[in-house]
Design a binder for these strands. Structure first.
Lengths: 212, 212, 212, 212
DNA sequence: GATGAATGAGGATTCATTCAT
DNA sequence: TATGAATGAATCCTCATTCAT
């Protein structure tokens, strides 16, 4: 009735809502990882979250909205946790170091959040869901472009873009291999992924340096 | 009474069946490409083929059987058309040439048969379908291993295997990029794919040569 | 072209047709026994007979026609094989003997032709198939009535009919128990069936004799 | 905040569910009676209940679960309504009375719940549904054995069991005849059923008494 | 907000039956 | 006749989504 009630009531509700949303997204992560986006059912997500289907729809208008929100949060979290992973490196940083740390950080993040892969991946992502996918994709590519621009100054934008796409492709391929392994084999594949990227970029970086 | 009447009658019928099967597989290819395996419906495949659902089930016991048969045919076709694409190269063949021609051939095949990619791809492949997927995968990896063994004699088998997996990953990543483009951009991505592979393998090949 | 060709051609065809029909009915028997009438599929029958579905429909207009024809043939066969099993007995025949031999003969027949039971039985017999069932039923009841009339002269027709229905019910119940057993147990159940019938009929027969 | 809000809200919902279940089981009863279990379709049951197919599956995972639950409820109801119908009779009870009342009670129950018969009956019961059927059957046979043991003390177990099976067979046969009639005819068949059972058991009971 | 019942279109699959060959 | 391909309605069942409470 007073200010408090008008501010704290909603806040409490929002807090509860946030908890619910987090709970649902966590459940969705697990289900998406297990069955893939297409085969995941909203009922299964609700069940996994321990709530009723109706509750799920109180927070998300439909299935893809869950995936989109999940993607957004992942991007946020990534930005916060490893914000500078892909930021332009200081001039003079050796390529190996730049790539190595970027891959390490990304791999760590993706290993901790396997949904990321499930969402990034897959041509069977149907309908409007593709938007979320594309958006995520575009963001990541943009960040890679920024990194590459600092590594290969003077390179044409089109080439930067293409190289960025290739790098992301290599990374995703490596990630898939990594996620399917454990222990020493996993570490070996992480190293391979770095090697592929380094060897791929080395001549490009060299050329741009020579040009500069 | 003559050979014709006793042999061609059934043959004609069989021919009709074969045509239907081909037609259904073609339809399935398109649907799988468009929607992915999981989301593809047998009714949609039948509709695309212009037949009733019952007809589809006259030739295939279930959805996965279609995918399996499709995979088998693709493998056959690949073997026949580009049989030696991945066969061990003559000693002394420059790496660039070996990789270049292998990638060209594969890309050509995959561009002509985009389902291949749809079937190769995707961790959300459910049920017993995964078998088919794995089998296809194993076959391809095996062929790459053979190629690598001839390129990098004396390398430990475990390393060969890992390298083969990485190469396949790179190729698939490249393919995905290529398939999403047209014309000059597509050609550029083909070249990038080759470059990635060549630069990745060059040191390995060199090392094994030095050792030999 | 001569008489021979006009008579023997059809005859040969009829002969072939008869063989086909017999073959199909045999297959149907097995399928009906295994899965029951409702769950039996015409395709399964055709497969069991080693012919195509089309062939089956060349001889039978639909599924129930198969059952009807099967029932008819069974009745014929029964009549031929054990024609007098239920015919009125000679006056003075002890009830035990009359019942005993009738049950023995029927049981033998039904044991040899388990379809009979499958067709007689069951409230899930749907649609027009019920006709066949009813017809068969009516025939059997009629024969039992004849037997009872000779055993219980002077009894009202309504009572005879009711008693006949009860006897058939007892017999079918006994048969079900018998068919589910083997060896000594089976023999014991045959005896029980006879006992039930004899004890049920004895007072009725006695009463009618006293009356006469 | 009060008990009412926290307990009755869910209760009301549960109540709705219970009503639906009852409604669905009632509809299932009718459909099973009309078409038999095998030919009964879940859609038909849902339609009969006036709900959508999805609703049915909210409460039952599949068709057989409906039949099983139906059987369970019938058994419960039977136990509650006529709990002692088959319980051992007081020593000295005339056989006619024991049988008469047991048959009356059972017939009354089965007449009120014709599904019981539909579920008891039928060798074409497929799949895991057979379990339910067998369980029901076993329960009933057990109760008859108990009754017979009290009527025929000193009889070998194997004989008791066989006699129980025969009695159940007779009863089911009688029931089938009874259910197909109305009014006076029905009553007459009830009496016949009793007579058959009494005459069948009389000598056995007498023998065991003589022995005792 | 939360619940869970309700919906109904859609998916895989089967099957009696027909038809071209 | 025989074949087997073709049909399409009907089955069982699922799922995204809505709604009354």
């Amino acid at each position: 009735m007073s200010d408090t009630s008008e501010k704290e009531q909603p806040r409490r509700r929002q807090a509860r809502g946030e908890r619910r949303i987090a709970q649902l997204l966590k459940a969705a992560s697990q289900v998406f990882c297990t069955t893939g986006y297409t085969a995941a059912s909203t009922n299964a997500i609700a069940r996994e979250a321990g709530v009723s289907p109706g509750t799920l729809y109180q927070f998300f208008p439909n299935k893809e909205a869950i995936a989109i929100e999940l993607g957004d949060r992942l991007m946020h979290e990534m930005r916060e946790a490893y914000g500078e992973a892909l930021a332009p490196v200081a001039p003079g940083t050796p390529l190996e170091e730049a790539i190595g740390s970027a891959v390490d950080r990304f791999m760590a993040f993706n290993t901790d959040h396997p949904v990321f892969f499930a969402l990034m991946h897959g041509p069977d992502i149907p309908g409007r869901m593709a938007e979320a996918h594309d958006q995520l994709h575009t963001t990541v590519v943009g960040r890679i472009e920024a990194l590459l621009t600092s590594l290969m100054p003077g390179t044409a934008q089109a080439d930067i873009t293409r190289t960025a796409h290739v790098c992301l492709g290599i990374y995703k391929a490596g990630l898939e291999l990594v996620l399917a392994r454990e222990g020493a084999e996993r570490a070996a594949y992480v190293q391979e992924t770095k090697d592929v990227l380094i060897r791929y970029l080395e001549p490009l970086v060299g050329a741009s340096l020579g040009r500069a």
